[in-house]
Design a protein around this nucleic acid. Structure first.
Lengths: 229, 229
DNA sequence: GTCGTACATTTGTACTTCAAATATATGACT
DNA sequence: AGTCATATATTTGAAGTACAAATGTACGAC
C-alpha cells in the first residue's frame, strides 16, 4: 500500500482559490504597497465569482494588513505590519505550554546575543537615559515600582540596539515572559537579590566591552537561566 | 481650545464592533482552544446583526487561526499558529528597507545568543547529524550545493537548540536574510573563504565550551557582521 | 445488531437590495 | 469667470434570502 500515492486532495474552498488567484495577480502585476487595485465588481467578474466570495478573500488580506479599503476610494496595497497579527494571538491562554517556554528562552537568547549591537550603537544620550532608569529604580520603594523599572531597563537596552524591529518583538514577548516567570514561582525571590545589578550592567556598558558585558548579563539573568544553562 | 476634549471618533465599522464583541465573549466565557462556539445564526441573533457581517468578523478570526470551522461541525477555538500569518507578509517586496536590515541583524543576534542552549541540548545523535551535514558540504562541488548545506548547517543549530519556536522563526527569516545578503553583494566573496569553517564550529561544539564557540561563531559570521560590529 | 438510506442541520456560496461615504458634475450666484 | 452649494454617480459596507455541499442523526431493512 503506497501511502505516497494518495492524492493530496483538493481541500481548498472557493475562497481559498480566490485568495491564491489574487495573490498571484498581485505578484504578476508587480504591485507595490501604495498601488490601488481594481474595484470589487471588476475583480469578481474577472474571476467569475460572486462579490460575496471575493469580499471574503479580500477580507483576509485586510486582516493581514496587506490591503486597505476606503469607501469610494477603492482599495490599495499597504505595507503590512509584521507583528500586528502576532499581537492578537500572543496570549498565555491561547498558546501551548511548550511554545510559552520557547518564547521565554527566546528572550534570554536575544539578551545574550544583543551585546555587540549595544556597544556599537551606544552614545552619550541613550547612556544617560539608561542611567536615569537605573537611578529611578534604585530610589523605588515598593515591589511594583521596582518591577516597572526593571522592565523599562531591559526595554531600554533593546531601544539602544537601534533595532526597531527587535524592540517591537521584545515588547510582544514581555507578557509571555512575565507569565512563565510567575508560573516558575521565581517571583518569590526578592527582585534585588542579584549578584549583578542594573547599575553594574550600566557601568560595564559605559566603560567595558561586549564580552565582559555578556558575562555580567548572564549572571544578571541567572535566576531565569538556571533551568536552561 | 482643548484638543484633548475632542472625542476619539467612533471610526469603527460594524464588523469591527462585532469582532470586539466576540473577543469579549470568548474571554468572558473563558473558552479554551478546542471548545466549540455557538453556530452562526445564534451568534448573529444574539448580537442583533446580519449573518453576513457576523461571518466577516468570524472570517478574521479564522484568518488569524483563532477559530476553525467545519461544515455541520460548527466552529471551535484553536491554538493559533504564531508564525502562520507572519509567513504571508515576510517578503522582501512588502517590507520596508529598515525592517529588512533589522531582520538581518536579528538573525545574527540569535546565532550569537544561542550558544548556551546548544551546549545544554547537544547529544550524540544531533551531533552526528550536524557532522553529516558538514561532511556533505565539504564534498560539495558547485556553489549552489554549498549554499544549500550552508543553510542546512545553521538550521540544524536551531534544531539542536531544542527550541521549536526559534527554529520556525529562523526559517521565516531565511528569505529575508538571503535577500539582504545579496543586496550587500556579499555573495561576491567565495563562500568558503572563511577563517572559521563549519567543521571548526562542529568540533568546538563537540569538545569546547559556549564562550569558545561563540567567539568562533562571531568569526564565522564576520562577513555579515563587519558592518555591524 | 449492523449496514445503508433518507432526513436534518450547519457552514459555504450566490444574488439582490439598500445604506453610507466620497468623488464628480452641474448650476446658481456674485 | 470663479466660487460655492447642490445634485448625481460611484464604490464599499451591510442585510436578507435562497440554495449548495457536507456532515451528523435517525430510521428502517435485512
Amino acid at each position: 500500500m503506497q501511502l505516497t500515492k494518495i492524492k493530496p486532495i483538493e481541500n481548498l474552498t472557493q475562497v481559498d482559490k480566490i485568495e491564491q488567484a489574487l495573490q498571484e495577480y498581485f505578484e504578476r502585476a508587480n504591485l507595490q504597497p501604495g498601488d490601488s487595485i481594481p474595484k470589487e465588481m471588476d475583480l469578481a467578474k474577472a474571476l467569475g465569482v460572486s462579490r460575496t466570495a471575493l469580499r471574503e478573500a479580500l477580507s483576509r488580506f485586510k486582516t493581514l494588513g496587506l490591503i486597505e479599503s476606503r469607501k469610494n476610494k477603492g482599495m490599495t496595497l499597504s505595507f503590512p505590519d509584521l507583528f500586528l497579527n502576532m499581537e492578537r494571538v500572543m496570549s498565555p491562554k491561547l498558546l501551548g505550554g511548550q511554545t510559552l517556554n520557547d518564547i521565554f528562552e527566546l528572550r534570554l537568547v536575544l539578551e545574550i546575543g544583543i551585546c555587540e549591537l549595544l556597544f556599537k550603537r551606544k552614545n552619550i544620550q541613550n547612556l544617560l537615559e539608561l542611567k536615569s532608569i537605573v537611578e529611578k529604580e534604585e530610589k523605588a520603594t515598593n515591589k511594583k515600582e521596582i518591577l516597572k523599572y526593571d522592565i523599562e531597563f531591559h526595554s531600554m537596552l533593546y531601544k539602544m540596539s537601534g533595532n526597531e524591529t527587535m524592540l517591537r518583538f521584545q515588547k510582544l514577548l514581555i507578557p509571555i515572559f512575565n507569565h512563565v516567570y510567575q508560573e516558575l514561582h521565581l517571583e518569590e525571590q526578592p527582585l534585588r537579590n542579584n549578584e549583578i545589578t542594573h547599575r553594574d550592567l550600566y557601568n560595564t556598558l559605559k566603560d567595558g566591552d561586549p564580552d565582559e558585558f555578556r558575562t555580567k548579563m548572564k549572571k544578571h539573568l541567572s535566576p531565569y537561566l538556571k533551568d536552561i544553562i
